[in-house]
Simulated assay, not measured.
Amino acid sequence: MVVVLGLPVVHGHGGVAWHSFKQLLDAGRGSHVTGLAELKRYLARFGYMAKPGRDTTDAFDEHLEVAVRRYQTRLSLPVTGRLDNATLDQIMSPRCGVGDDDVERPVSVALSPGAQGGVVSRFTFFKGEPRWTRSDPPIVLSYAVSPTATVGYLPPAAVRAVFQRAFARWARTIPVGFVETDDYEAADIKVGFYAGNHGDGVPFDGPLGILGHAFSPKNGRLHLDASEHWAVDFDVDATASAIDLESVATHEIGHVLGLGHSTSPRAVMYPSIKPREKKVRLTVDDVEGVQALYGSNPQFSLSSLSEQGTSSSSPRRLLAGSARLLCTVLVILVTQL
């Protein structure tokens, strides 16, 4: 349970607070507890069971048990079929709005050819494995942060620096470059902060519920919930409910590139994050997933992952890759002048 200044935080889903699920602790098949109907809607929302009808009850039936087991398996939790502490804590955590196994956008789990001991990789893709392409390689994508869809307490320069670092983090692993532009409408990737129903059919739900969402290639929309308390530096922002902007930005860019959610709790592409948690370093699973879509940056090696977050994530280092890629970006910049 998330607590701020001694009070429970209401993080809503469909008008009902996720924190109310705490009363479901230890519920299992055969139980009848107020709130189970809303839990069924939650699990349906993220792809674990069919959408319940209006006559949905608060009974813990066999369908809910199957959904709970699927949820526990998918998110690497102990598979008990009951609403134990670990499962409820995960359910009540703030998370990404992209479904984990949406029936309209199913994902596939791939074997890692380089994994030791035949370990199964946990990265996933959107259905059809969509990715960005260019008729004339290399791939260089433009992005822009909306000048109007903002949160007033964060300086625009600080937000732009966060996204510069987040894009650079992915760029150093694959032969894809990102260049920031002031032309929001023309950008390949459009970033903005929005609250509630914001016109894309996937409304936000208030603080500490759904943090953000992004669409698969080549849509390019990346939206963050303006109702959250976003932080760019925990050393200067002591708010207990603060969400690290760079962590969520890095995660959502993974979706923009075509990655689904990972089942590895350590991965950036795992669907949830706690308040005041910073999770920006790509794991082997994240990298192998994105490289399966785009190939490897010739100058990148998996052994360099431990260095990420230091000099390699400098705000000015937007591109990582070959000299040809860098030259292409410079040409683009010159032509925009």
Rank of each mutant, 00 (worst) to 15 (best):
Q308K: 06
S306H: 13
A249C: 12
L5K: 15
D205S: 08
D84T: 06
D237H: 01
L293N: 00
F167D: 06
P113W: 06
G212I: 15
S303P: 10
P156I: 10
K22A: 00
W230Q: 02
L39N: 03
G309Q: 00
L36A: 04
V10A: 08
H11W: 06
P137Q: 08
S262C: 04
G128E: 13
D233Q: 11
F126L: 02
E129I: 02
T310K: 14
R41L: 01
E307I: 07
Y294L: 00
G97Q: 15
P156W: 10
D182H: 07
I91E: 06
Y294P: 02
S306M: 11
Y71M: 13
G99A: 10
G99M: 10
H261W: 01
S76D: 15
V162N: 14
Q164S: 12
L43C: 12
L319N: 05
V159T: 08
G201M: 00
A187D: 08
D101G: 04
Q299Y: 11
L24E: 09
I174S: 01
F204I: 11
Q308W: 04
K278Y: 03
P298T: 00
Q164W: 06
S142F: 07
G12M: 11
N297P: 02
D237E: 07
F167I: 10
I91Y: 04
L111C: 04
R105K: 06
T34G: 13
A195T: 06
D58L: 08
V145M: 12
D200C: 01
G47W: 11
A171E: 12
M49V: 03
M269W: 08
L305T: 00
V232Y: 04
S296K: 02
T328C: 09
R41T: 01
V107R: 01
A144V: 11
Q308R: 02
L337F: 11
D101K: 04
P265S: 01
R172Q: 15
V202S: 08
E307A: 07
D182I: 03
E62H: 14
S314K: 12
D55S: 03
E307Q: 13
G6H: 07
T150G: 03
P52G: 04
V290H: 05
F163M: 14
G53W: 03
D233H: 09
P203T: 09
V179S: 12
S303W: 13
W230P: 07
L24Y: 03
A249H: 04
V2Q: 07
S146Y: 11
L337E: 15
D61N: 14
I273P: 05
